[in-house]
C-alpha cells in the first residue's frame, strides 16, 4: 500500500508542530476528545473555508477587467440596499468627497481596523478600499459609511477658541454646553 498522502499530511503536521509548539497540540487533542466541540470546530472550519472561497471568487470576478462599479452591481444583485451602500461609498470616494488624499485613505483603514492599503496612488487605493468593503457584512459597511460621513476634523485655533471661549462659568457636573446656545 502506498502511504504517500498520509506521509504528506504528516510532513505538514510536523511543520505546524514546530510553529505552534507541542503544548498547543496536546491541548487541542484534549479538546477534540469532546465530540460536540469537535463537531462545532469542524463546522467552523468548513464555514471559514467556504467564506474564503467566496472571497476568492469575488476577487477573481473583480479582476476580470470589469469596472469596479459594474462588479458591485453584479455581485450584489439580490441585495439592492447593499449595492446602493457600496456604490455611494465608491462614488463619494471618486468625487473626492470622502478621504480626499491617499494618506487619509490609509490612515482611515489603520484607525478603524480595516485591511491595510498598500496602493501607491489614490485611484488604486479607492479600488482596494472598495474591495475591502465588499468583503464586509452590510451592517459593517453601514458603520464604515457612518464614519466616512462624519464632518472632517477641524484642528484650527479658531475652532478650539470657539469651544474655549463659549464656555459658561461655574456649571455643575453633567450640565453641558448645550445650555449655552
Amino acid at each position: 500500500m502506498n502511504y504517500n498522502k498520509e506521509y504528506e499530511l504528516l510532513k505538514d503536521l510536523a511543520k505546524l508542530l514546530q510553529k505552534h509548539g507541542p503544548e498547543s497540540f496536546k491541548s487541542l487533542a484534549l479538546l477534540f476528545s469532546d465530540k460536540e466541540l469537535a463537531e462545532t470546530i469542524s463546522n467552523i472550519l468548513f464555514e471559514v473555508h467556504h467564506h474564503s472561497e467566496l472571497i476568492k471568487k469575488t476577487q477573481k470576478k473583480l479582476s476580470k477587467n470589469k469596472t469596479l462599479r459594474s462588479s458591485i452591481i453584479e455581485l450584489n444583485k439580490d441585495d439592492p440596499e447593499r449595492t446602493n451602500l457600496l456604490l455611494s461609498i465608491y462614488d463619494k470616494l471618486e468625487e473626492n468627497k470622502y478621504l480626499p488624499t491617499l494618506k487619509q485613505i490609509r490612515l482611515f483603514c489603520e484607525d478603524n481596523a480595516l485591511k491595510p492599503i498598500s496602493a501607491r496612488s489614490r485611484k488604486s487605493a479607492i479600488n482596494q478600499f472598495v474591495k475591502v468593503m465588499m468583503e464586509l457584512s452590510s451592517s459593517d459597511i453601514s458603520s464604515v459609511k457612518k464614519l466616512l460621513d462624519e464632518k472632517p476634523e477641524d484642528r484650527t485655533l479658531d475652532g478650539w477658541s470657539s469651544i474655549i471661549l463659549n464656555r459658561k462659568e461655574d456649571k455643575m457636573p453633567n450640565q453641558t454646553l448645550k445650555a449655552d446656545k
Binding site: K151, E153, D154, G159, W160, S162, I163, M172, P173, L177
Partner: peptide
C-alpha cells in the same frame, strides 16, 4: 481628537474627568 469630536464629547452627557472628580 479634533474640534468636532471634542464638541460631541462635552455635549453628549457622558462624564469627563471633571465629572469623575465632582461625583
Amino acid at each position: 481628537v479634533g474640534v468636532h469630536k471634542y464638541m460631541n464629547i462635552i455635549n453628549d452627557n457622558r462624564p469627563t474627568i471633571w465629572e469623575i472628580f465632582e461625583q
